[in-house]
Design a protein around this nucleic acid. Structure first.
Length: 478
RNA sequence: GGGGUAGUAGGGUAGCCUGGUCCAUCCUAGAGCGUUUGGGACGCUUUGACGGCGGUUCGAAUCCGCCCUACCCCA
């Protein structure tokens, strides 16, 4: 037998592994004939559904979900100068209605500030209208010129959660930024994805923002992936779009705003951080199927085994688990590989021997075997899924810890980066030294004000000029 | 942004320069039948393609033009 039969490329060949896995595990089809646009397979879309369900649950605590149009008229889009500068090279324009050229070109939203804020100007009248906290999950379009990759750099972002808030004061907006950061932490905690939070350097902040807080994770090849950003917009947009309110004293005041975004990159991270050489590994919260029952059917016992498996399935489903009974006419081994590739966290094997013992073999996707008994199936599965979640989280945290380090010289920075690490250095926050670090180490300054559970962020002398510096995260990015 | 290479069935390849064939070929692909089944079973039968549009030609996967897409290298 061919040992390599059906094998994925190894995860250490990350790029190949990722592309092949998306195809084989039926997450995305890259063959759509427009560059940078991809098709969700039903299985991948189901993962998306559970991930975004989790995100919505968190947001719904104090945001309201809305939906704004895809098209933005040119005048509105062009109002905020800095904002335009950041996006003008990557906007798609609708220029015709049928064969008739449009009087006013319409932009396909690259992000929705300029769609939403003119409406905020109408909605906000009094201090009693504030705060406003809304979000939407939409597709956005950017004409990317760099190499596109499914879910990581696409021309259509299919699943962009963007939240937009309006507040009476700058401080209140800042508090909102912190609350969005906490929400992001909680979201990624539930996906078992470790993150690092930092404040992007000024030249890399969101066009039109006071400051940008970014959330990054580390991919298997050591590159960082930005999987969330929170922006304090100050009053830049509210001045441009005249978002004003009348305060308690009857005075007109300009409002302050934040916005915040998470895209399907969170799914790219989910797949990449947890997967292994055999395929996907999905944390139970977002697994399309949390357990698959594979009946081992031989000869006369066939009907008995199937009946017991069906009973187990019904029992587990009644307790709220997402379960499938795989009764296809395939060899059991082939089914194991099939579901391992697709990341199902728990496999329950049920054959004649197990039937007699009143138990099923429980094999964890992340490694390890145990048994569950029919009598206490729901409790046993709850316990085992909990163990799996913890295992997945621990492995992901290990990966992050082992890919983070602190250095105090350019040489050490270069060798750490070449070894696939993300690095904390000290930087004086002068643009010149920042450019020097980026250029000499062929890397990006991810941010200052580093917040991470996995590495200490202390002050120290700038590694370029030696003046007092602050902890700064440096990495090679997607 | 600049340059290069390539698109042939579900996937992988040959064929192209030098236009023509009866059966291209390999596989973890599809369909069908049978025997199997505690870690990727096997046998037999069979389906299916030249990225798109246009041109040259009696005849195009092959030659010409435009477009689309993918990958690699350099900035």
């Amino acid at each position: 037998m061919d040992e390599d039969a059906g094998a994925l490329p190894k995860k250490q060949d990350f790029s190949e592994w990722y592309n092949e896995l998306l195809w084989r595990a039926e997450i995305m089809d890259v063959r759509y004939p427009v560059k940078g646009l991809y098709v969700w397979f039903p299985y991948g879309f189901a993962i998306r559904k559970f991930v975004y369900q989790r995100l919505r649950e968190l947001l719904d605590r104090d945001h309201k979900e809305t939906l704004f149009p895809l098209l933005i008229p040119e005048q509105e889009f062009m109002k905020e100068a800095e904002h335009i500068k950041g996006f003008e090279d990557e906007v798609y324009w609708v220029t015709h209605g049928g064969t008739t050229p449009l009087d006013v070109k319409l932009a396909l939203r690259p992000t929705s500030e300029t769609a939403i804020y003119p409406m905020f100007a109408l909605w906000v009248r009094s201090h009693a209208d504030l705060p406003i906290k809304i979000y939407q999950v939409v597709n956005t379009f950017r004409y990317e010129t760099k190499q596109t990759r499914p879910m990581i750099r696409a021309r259509e972002i299919t699943s962009f959660m963007e939240s937009h808030t309006v507040h009476a004061t700058w401080d209140e907006a800042e508090a909102q930024v912190e609350s969005e950061i906490a929400l992001t932490r909680e979201f990624y905690q539930s996906l078992c994805i470790p993150i690092i939070i930092s404040k992007r350097p000024d030249w890399d902040k969101f066009p039109g923002a006071d400051y940008t807080i970014a959330v990054d994770t580390i991919m298997p090849n050591g590159k960082t992936l930005q999987i969330g950003t929170v922006h304090h917009l100050g009053d830049h947009f509210s001045r441009t779009f005249s978002i004003q309110y009348e305060d308690k004293n009857g005075e007109q005041k300009v409002a302050f705003q934040t916005c915040y975004g998470i895209s399907e990159r969170c799914i790219a991270a989910l797949i990449s951080v947890h997967g292994d050489d055999k395929g996907l590994i999905l944390p139970p919260v977002v697994a399309t199927l949390q357990a698959v029952i594979v009946p081992i059917t031989i000869g006369k016992r066939h009907d008995d085994v199937i009946a017991a498996a069906e009973k187990l399935k019904i029992d587990l489903e009644a307790n709220g688990f997402r379960v499938k009974l795989d009764a296809r006419d395939m060899r059991p081994g082939a089914k194991y590989y099939w579901w391992e590739l697709r990341g199902v966290p728990l496999r329950l094997e049920l054959g004649p021997r197990d039937l007699d013992a009143g138990k099923a073999m429980a094999v964890k996707r992340c490694g390890g075997k145990t048994t569950i008994s029919f009598a206490t199936a729901a409790d046993d599965v709850t316990r085992v899924l909990g163990e799996i979640t913890e295992d997945i989280r621990e492995k992901a945290e290990e990966h992050m810890k082992s890919h983070l380090c602190t250095v105090d010289s350019m040489d050490a920075l270069n060798s750490a980066l070449n070894a696939g690490k993300v690095v904390v250095v000290h930087w004086c926050r002068e643009r010149g030294c920042g450019d020097a670090i980026e250029e000499k180490a062929n890397s990006s300054l991810l941010g200052t004000d580093v917040r991470s559970d996995y590495i200490e962020a202390t002050d120290g002398p700038c590694i370029i000029c030696g003046k007092p510096g602050k902890a700064t995260l440096v990495g090679r990015t997607y």
